[in-house]
C-alpha cells in the first residue's frame, strides 16, 4: 500500500506535540490523520476508524497510553501502536511492549523517525 492510502492516529494530550506531528505527516500525503487528546478518546477513535498506525503518548489524562494500548490491542490484535513518550525509561519501555505496543520512541521525535515508521507501515499493509 502507498503512503497516500494509510490512516494515522496521533494520541497526545499536548496540543503542541499533536500539531507538530500533524504538520509533518500532512506533508507526506497520507490518507487521513486522526487526533486524540487523551487515552479514552484514542480507544474510541481507534475502534471507529481503525487507523493503520498509532503514535501514542504515555502520560495522558483520563486513560494513560499504556491502558489505551491494552484496550486497542484487545480489540484488534494486529494494531500497530508506537509509543512516543518523553519518559523512555526501561520500565516504561517494558510496560509498553507488554501492553502490546509495537515500538517505543523517545521524544523529541525526529521527522526522519516518523517518515521511516510510516513508510514501513505502508509496506506492511496489503
Amino acid at each position: 500500500m502507498a503512503l497516500e492510502n494509510i490512516k494515522v492516529m496521533i494520541a497526545d494530550d499536548s496540543m503542541f506535540a499533536r500539531k507538530k506531528l500533524i504538520n509533518f505527516i500532512s506533508t507526506l500525503g497520507v490518507a487521513e490523520v486522526i487526533e486524540a487528546a487523551d487515552g479514552e478518546e484514542a480507544v474510541e477513535k481507534y475502534k471507529a476508524s481503525k487507523p493503520n498506525v498509532v503514535f501514542m503518548d504515555i502520560v495522558m489524562p483520563k486513560k494513560t497510553g499504556i491502558e489505551a494500548v491494552k484496550e486497542i490491542v484487545a480489540f484488534d490484535p494486529s494494531a500497530k501502536v508506537i509509543m512516543a513518550s518523553s519518559v523512555g525509561t526501561q520500565n516504561h519501555l517494558r510496560d509498553a511492549i507488554m501492553a502490546g505496543a509495537s515500538d517505543f520512541i523517545q521524544k523529541p521525535i525526529s521527522n526522519d523517525q516518523i517518515q521511516k515508521i510510516l513508510e514501513n507501515t505502508a509496506k506492511e499493509v496489503k
Binding site: S14, V59, S85, S86, T89, Q106, K107
Partner: peptide
C-alpha cells in the same frame, strides 16, 4: 502554553531516563 509545557515535558522526560 502547550509549547512551553512540551519543552518542560521533554526536559523532564530526559531527566527521568
Amino acid at each position: 502554553d502547550a509549547t512551553v509545557g512540551e519543552f518542560m515535558n521533554v526536559n523532564n522526560g530526559l531527566f527521568t531516563v
